[in-house]
């Protein structure tokens, strides 16, 4: 049951991510077509002294704290990873492997707990976990060397 509920949110997140990306691309294409920039609006924004970067950053910090407590929302957390190499490496993992990773790292679950959830032995969960770490390390190193 647990996995099914996670899968639902994962499916939904994937659905939303795709829709949002497509919308964003279309919007930005439209925007660049009207390439005359409305300078007035930009000046008004600046005069309001709203620092959106900072607001977003603060929101990220708060949300991260929430997500760490509720690690099952890790799909959302994945979207917040800013290091592109890491994000890409994480996305290359199988969903099950991601789940093991986050269960261990954020949920701090024991391998027998993880094994029970995913219907494998605790030893299998443990081996999968270390396999995932090796795989990530390999992929991140490979990127660094330009391969």
């Amino acid at each position: 049951m647990e996995i099914q509920k996670n899968m639902l949110q994962i499916r939904f997140t994937a659905y939303v991510t795709t829709a949002v990306r497509n919308k964003r691309v279309n919007y930005l294409m439209q925007k660049s077509r009207h390439s005359w920039v409305n300078m007035e609006q930009v000046d008004q924004l600046e005069s309001l002294h709203i620092n959106f970067e900072e607001l977003y950053h603060r929101y990220t910090v708060e949300r991260t704290a929430f997500l760490l407590e509720n690690w099952r929302h890790y799909a959302e957390f994945l979207e917040m990873v800013e290091d592109r190499k890491l994000a890409r490496a994480l996305k290359h993992l199988k969903e099950r492997d991601r789940m093991i990773l986050f269960a261990r790292l954020f949920g701090e679950e024991s391998f027998s707990e993880i094994g029970e959830t995913l219907q494998m032995s605790s030893k299998q969960a443990e081996m999968s976990y270390y396999y995932v770490l090796r795989k990530l390390r390999k992929e991140l190193e490979a990127d660094k060397n330009g391969f």
Partner: peptide
């Protein structure tokens, strides 16, 4: 999903 929306 706000962080996702804001980022995009």
């Amino acid at each position: 999903y706000k962080p996702l929306l804001v980022k995009n």
